[in-house]
């Protein structure tokens, strides 16, 4: 096994581990911080892929990930959290232990799914896809298990991190696509910000639990 391959594998696994770190954290500030670290690891993965695939436009992807997702988004989320006065413990719908267990099961599931489908792809692409899909599923899991709107948004962003990770591993992904993903996430971020204010105004809380009674489910 050569060094290029091992290092790509290592960085991909780091992104995955930080996905677990997101699931493990309970406090909002720690969740946002873990997300920033995950985005930075993603930038590293993109830069490494740019280096080994010799495709300079991936450096731009890395820079976008670093500036937008590792700096601007966490900063904006932190600002929102402080403005809305919700820097308290995160309520989880499920306990941390069961969530982590489901997380590991999801990783196993994505490996079982990806490996047979990509028999003909190169080893690097295959593993990258398996890891990226796990990150996507972990993001989804986070959106399901958290009640607080801010952590659900972080789950969404983490899911998007997984998409980028999958994108940079595939050769020949055009820059336009990645740019548009990055900007749509930024737009989504702004929309979420507005929604936070609306939800907060209406229910005096960001716990989405209250929305259920509003919909008439309880």
């Amino acid at each position: 096994m050569n060094f290029h391959y091992s290092a790509a594998h290592l960085i991909g696994a780091l992104v995955l581990l930080l996905g677990f770190q997101l699931l493990y954290q309970r406090r909002i500030a720690a969740v946002i911080r873990s997300f920033a670290v995950q985005a930075a690891a993603l930038a590293l993965a993109a830069a490494w892929q740019a280096y080994i695939q010799d495709s300079p436009h991936l450096y731009i992807t890395a820079a976008i990930a670093l500036v937008f997702k590792a700096m601007i988004v966490p900063f904006a989320l932190n600002w929102l959290v402080v403005r809305l006065g919700i820097h308290k413990t995160v309520e989880t719908a499920l306990g941390i232990g069961p969530t982590m267990m489901i997380g590991v099961a999801l990783v196993a599931l994505s490996i079982v799914l990806v490996l047979p489908v990509t028999q003909n792809a190169s080893a690097l692409t295959r593993e990258n896809l398996a890891l990226a899909m796990s990150v996507v599923l972990l993001g989804l899991l986070m959106m399901i298990t958290r009640r607080n709107a801010v952590s659900q948004v972080v789950g969404f962003m983490a899911l998007e991190n997984g998409l980028i990770l999958a994108a940079v591993g595939v050769k020949g992904m055009p820059l336009v696509v990645e740019m548009s993903i990055a900007f749509s996430v930024l737009v989504a971020m702004i929309l979420f910000g507005i929604f936070f204010y609306r939800i907060r105004e209406r229910f005096d809380s960001l716990d989405l639990h209250y929305l259920e009674s509003f919909r008439g489910e309880r």
């Binding site: 677990f20 941390i96 590991v104 990783v107």
Partner: peptide
């Protein structure tokens, strides 16, 4: 949670 994290890391 702490030691479950260790177990899950090892499983992973």
């Amino acid at each position: 949670d702490f030691l479950g994290g260790a177990l899950l890391l090892a499983v992973l």
